[in-house]
Nucleic acid binder design. Structure first.
Lengths: 201, 201
DNA sequence: GCCACGTCATGACATCTGTCATGGCTGATT
DNA sequence: AATCAGCCATGACAGATGTCATGACGTGGC
């Protein structure tokens, strides 16, 4: 019997996935959590064979929960299940030790088979997505550029960003300019769009 | 037996919801589609009692499919199931004749009961979301302002927007200026963010 | 007929943005 | 010691953006 922990914030989807897995005779959903920061405690208490983690969750992302789990329960296989086939997500997940990366777009039957393959020690990745990840590669941005770009999502003007990061407005503009050149964008907004599409956030 | 049509683009979620509904003795999922523009044809062929529609789908949105269905199969109850509790979505859905509006955040058990209540003629809406919709009201934007703002998602510069809509750059700036004042935004980007959060798109 | 409103447009203005050159500082590499 | 990349900052410049006044046109309501 394969013991599965299920982490997914949307109640409807979580319940539905549980019922889907409940149809499998060799799979048992032993824990369900709705927040990223509840994954570790739940996993410690039930010691699952496989953890199925959504990425977008309150508290902590699935990728953060993945890192915690790897440290605390090295024997537990981890599958990431997400809406977005962002190559950056895939790369980070696999580098952090995930056993697989599933898209919610994939057919429902693949879920159970992915779990069985993960338990058998295989790594499960959508082939097309893997190719995209390799071709698109990592973010070309430096840590600071990444930070400034991320802050520009929440603050409307350069002055606001500068205030939030304790930088001079000129520095913020320089960083953003560098970001735009690297991403071949004509705009802060366009740069943001491109970075989000690639999963670099 | 309640005959249900299920429209949801993500295969994993669609299959999971189907299995969830399959547990209910009085509910039968008689059709599944992955695209908004396949809803009508499928509904015509199986004549379901209830159509469960996701909003975000390729081909046509759930709200568009809703409008088609109301015209073609007036007896069919329609439930909207979506990730985003945007008051604008809710308002449009209910005005177009939906029997209910469910959030994927809600507990899984609510799905079956919502379907039964819809069949019984009730209208099913999350109380908190309904209150938010009433308080936030409708979009204050005119049709043209709305259109220009929407176009600014896809085009980076004023010149691009103007070209796409066959307007002069000055006119586009005027419309956007008016939008920003109405939404109390300091930016095109901020205005876009606000409008998206409210579901005015 | 008059008025309000939405649409489209132009021109002028102030401000914001993005680019570039330049320079100082740090830490890592050679 | 010398070099390089990243980080921070400043100043100057061009171009984009947002605001405002103004005016034309059509529609619909009173």
């Amino acid at each position: 019997m394969i013991r599965v922990l299920l982490a997914e914030d949307q109640g409807m989807v979580r319940g539905a996935l549980a019922s889907l897995l409940g149809l499998e005779p060799d799979i048992d959903v032993v824990a369900q959590v709705a927040r990223g920061d509840e994954v570790l405690a739940a996993a410690r208490s039930v010691d699952p064979d496989v953890a199925l983690l959504d990425i977008e969750m309150p508290g902590a992302t699935g990728l953060e929960a993945l890192a915690e789990l790897r440290g605390a329960l090295p024997g537990c296989r981890i599958l990431i299940l997400t809406t977005f086939g962002r190559p950056g997500y895939l790369r980070r997940a696999m580098e952090t030790g995930a056993s697989g990366f599933l898209l919610k777009d994939a057919p429902a039957q693949e879920l159970a088979s992915a779990i069985r393959r993960a338990v058998a020690g295989e790594r499960v990745v959508d082939p097309g997505l893997a190719a995209a990840a390799l071709s698109e590669g990592e973010s070309p941005l430096t840590a600071r550029e990444h930070e400034v770009l991320a802050a520009s999502r929440n603050y409307a003007t350069v002055a606001d960003i500068a205030g939030a990061l304790y930088l001079s407005p000129g520095t913020v503009r320089n960083h953003l300019s560098s970001v735009m050149q690297k991403l071949d964008a004509r705009n802060r907004a366009e740069a943001l769009k491109f970075a989000e599409e690639k999963g670099w956030l």
